[in-house]
Every structure is written in C-alpha cells, then in structure tokens.
Amino acid sequence: MTEQSEGKELVITRVFNYPRELVFKVWSEAEHLKRWWGPKGFEIHVAQLDFRPGGLFHYNMQSPDGVQMWGKFVYQDIQAFEKIVWVNSFSDELGNIVRAPFSDLIPLEIRNTVTFSENDGITTMTLCGGPVNATEEERRFFEGMFDSMQEGFGGTFDQLEEYLAAHS
C-alpha cells in the first residue's frame, strides 16, 4: 500500500556540482548516510539499512549534549538514480513508531520523495514531504513548521554538500 501525503507539502530543492549517481549513492548506503544525515552536530548510528522497497533505515541520533532519539525510514519506492520514496517517523530502539520527543503535534509519519535529475554533471535534488494519516491539528502544525524544517534540512543538506566534496 502506498500512502499519499495530505495537505500542503514541504518542498526543498538543492543543486550539487556532482553527478546524479554519486548523489544517489550517498542516500543508499549506511556508510555514507551516517556521515551526513540528520541535524547539524548530531552523531548518527545506523542500526539497520535495507535499501529496497519495503526495506528499513533505522538509526539513532545523538545530540552534542548526549540526548538520543531514534528514527526510521520505511522505503516505498526506489528508482535507481532518479527517486527514493519513504515514510519517515520517530521510533524507539526496536523500530516501533513513537511521538517526536519534543512535540505531540508532529505527525507520526511523514511521506518523503526525493528526486534527482542531472544536467552536464550537475544534480538537482528535490525533497517533497507531507504527513500521512495525520489529524487536522497535526497537518496545521506541520505546515507551520515549514520555515524551521527548511532551516533544518538546509543544515543537513549543507552536510551532504561537504560530504560530497570530500568524497568525489
């Protein structure tokens, strides 16, 4: 079953001076993901990565002051070098979906699609995300967080840019 996002979606586009195959690859392997995914300054530990439709990315994020949070992706669709679709959620260490530790109004599940296109060795990456099975209150809260999420993903994608520069 493929869930569709509901309401307005967060859309973020970034351009990287690297080939699409490389940008896609760093989304698809644990060794790469743990080095750039997540909030700036957090350390990522990968519990599991099964990069296929129906597979799972389960990870732990630790803040600089030692606070730990778990998250997971459940992959829905993967088209090599073109698109990755997953449902993202906070989880416990066993992979069960839990509320975000900092807000009861963040939707339990966010469906994300990231697409990759290339022109002359330059990759345009677009992330679109929106809540799944959310209440009206959760949808409004999610939409009210767009500026904060733009900033957060901006930091994550800055880390991706730095990682690509060091590994190309």
Score class of each variant (00 low, 15 high):
K83T: 11
S103M: 01
S63C: 05
N112F: 09
F57R: 03
I106D: 02
P131L: 00
A80Q: 14
P101Q: 11
G95D: 03
G7I: 01
L22A: 12
I44D: 00
I12T: 08
I78D: 04
D65Y: 08
K8H: 07
P131Y: 00
P39C: 08
G55A: 10
G121P: 00
G7F: 01
I12A: 03
E161H: 15
D77A: 11
F146T: 06
I44A: 05
G95T: 05
L160S: 06
P107H: 03
S63L: 04
D104L: 05
W27D: 09
F116E: 04
E143W: 00
R140T: 09
R52K: 15
G152D: 08
F81T: 15
N60K: 15
T123A: 10
K40L: 09
E109A: 06
P39H: 11
K40G: 05
G55E: 10
V132D: 04
L22C: 07
Q62K: 12
V132I: 12
M149P: 11
M149D: 13
S103L: 00
H45A: 12
A47Q: 14
N17H: 12
I106T: 09
G129I: 04
F42E: 10
L94D: 09
Q4V: 10
D50Q: 11
H167S: 14
E9C: 12
S103F: 02
K8Q: 12
T13D: 10
I78H: 02
Q76C: 04
N96Q: 09
V114G: 00
M69H: 09
W70R: 02
W36H: 13
F51E: 13
G154L: 03
A30R: 01
E6A: 05
W86M: 07
G71K: 04
G38K: 09
G41F: 07
M1H: 13
M1D: 14
G38Y: 09
C128L: 14
S148Q: 15
D77E: 15
W70F: 11
L49I: 08
I110L: 12
Q48S: 13
F157E: 01
V87F: 01
V26Y: 07
C128P: 01
P19K: 05
W70K: 02
P101Y: 09
R14G: 01
E21F: 03
E3W: 09
P107W: 01
K25N: 14
N60Q: 15
K34H: 09
V74S: 08
F116W: 05
T2P: 09
P53N: 07
E93P: 00
V85I: 08
E118C: 03
W86E: 04
P131C: 02
L105K: 13
I122R: 14
A165S: 14
A30V: 02
T13S: 14
I78R: 06
R99I: 10
L49P: 05
I12K: 11
P101C: 09
P107T: 08
R111T: 02
P107K: 03
L49N: 11
K72I: 00
I12V: 14
L127R: 00
K8T: 05
E21I: 03
Y18C: 05
R111S: 06
P39F: 05
V98Q: 08
Q159L: 12
D50L: 06
E138A: 10
G54K: 11
V15H: 10
D104P: 03
F81M: 13
W37M: 12
N88E: 14
K40I: 06
S103G: 01
S103C: 01
K34G: 06
S28I: 05
W27S: 06
W70A: 00
G38S: 13
D104K: 07
